[in-house]
Nucleic acid binder design. Structure first.
Length: 152
DNA sequence: GCCAACGTTGGC
DNA sequence: GCCAACGTTGGC
């Protein structure tokens, strides 16, 4: 059982959108970074939990928790010429990009902002607060996970 | 295999 | 909208 943090732009897909899905479940598509892909494909397990992080918005930060329900699925958007995530170089016989399916678990009472995350020395090693880190998916240690839960 | 040019991310 | 940081591409 592992912990993760996954970023999404709320203007594109925010936690409200996940909560409002009929089954509160969504394929987490569009990851186009090899490091993040490797984690999605090789390390994530059903039952893992992930923080939902809102990026590139007015108040970036962690807004809730979701559960990883299915893993190791080829991302269909890579084969769709009409998709923003289309990748003409990906071979259907050997897909380049993968996704996991996530399910809404709960929304925090408030956003735990990036500024707040940065203010705690206990979180100095959290990739999201490290300078220059842009990974949209990354692991969270059990200690970091518990600490962040305590901030809510 | 190097590296310049270009593209993307994402905070501010 | 700016721009720093980082990733990818492609010529050589």
């Amino acid at each position: 059982m592992n912990y993760w943090l996954m970023k999404s732009e709320p203007d594109v897909f925010g936690i409200e959108d996940l909560k409002n899905r009929p089954d509160q479940t969504e394929p987490w598509d569009g990851v186009r970074n090899y490091q993040a892909r490797n984690m999605l494909r090789d390390q994530m397990q059903p039952g893992d939990l992930a923080f939902f992080y809102h990026s590139n918005c007015k108040e970036p930060g962690i807004v809730g928790i979701m559960e990883i329900v299915r893993t190791g699925l080829p991302d269909p958007t890579q084969f769709d010429p009409d998709s923003d995530y289309y990748d003409p170089k990906s071979d259907p016989a050997n897909p380049r990009w993968y996704l996991v399916e996530v399910r809404f678990q709960r929304q925090f009472r408030r956003t735990i902002t990036l500024a707040e995350l940065k203010s705690h020395p206990e979180l100095a090693e959290l990739p999201t607060v490290r300078k220059g880190n842009r990974l949209s998916v990354h692991p969270v240690s059990p200690a970091q996970w518990e600490f962040i839960l305590g901030l809510e």
